[in-house]
């Protein structure tokens, strides 16, 4: 039996700032994971990734596992948890902008 599909978000880094970005339901790029679009169908996720990868102003778009939380998508893996916050040794990155 095929394993159930884990919902995905599309993420990348912005070409100019290098900042972590996410594809929103409106097909724009947003800086907060909670504003990202969560895709529960594999076809749909792959299709949005293909669309997002064509944007010349983003770098390295990829799909990543996420789950629906109270305030929007939540990361499954600790790497994405760091990406949405920032480094643990300095209060820099997204955590400093809140």
């Amino acid at each position: 039996m095929a394993r159930p599909f884990t919902p995905k978000i599309v993420t990348a880094n912005a070409l100019l700032e290098g900042d972590v970005i996410y594809l929103s339901p409106q097909d724009t790029w947003v800086r907060d994971l909670c504003d990202a679009a969560l895709f529960s169908q594999q076809d749909q996720a792959e299709e949005r990734l293909a669309f997002a990868s064509k944007d010349g102003f983003v770098v390295g778009a990829y799909l990543v596992d996420a789950v629906a939380g109270e305030n929007g998508p939540e990361p499954v893996h600790f790497r994405e948890d760091f990406r949405r916050t920032g480094p643990s040794n300095h209060n820099h990155g997204k955590q400093a902008e809140l």
Partner: peptide, 9 residues
Amino acid sequence: GLYLQLHAY
């Protein structure tokens, strides 16, 4: 010398 890392260049 320019990388693109986790949070930034």
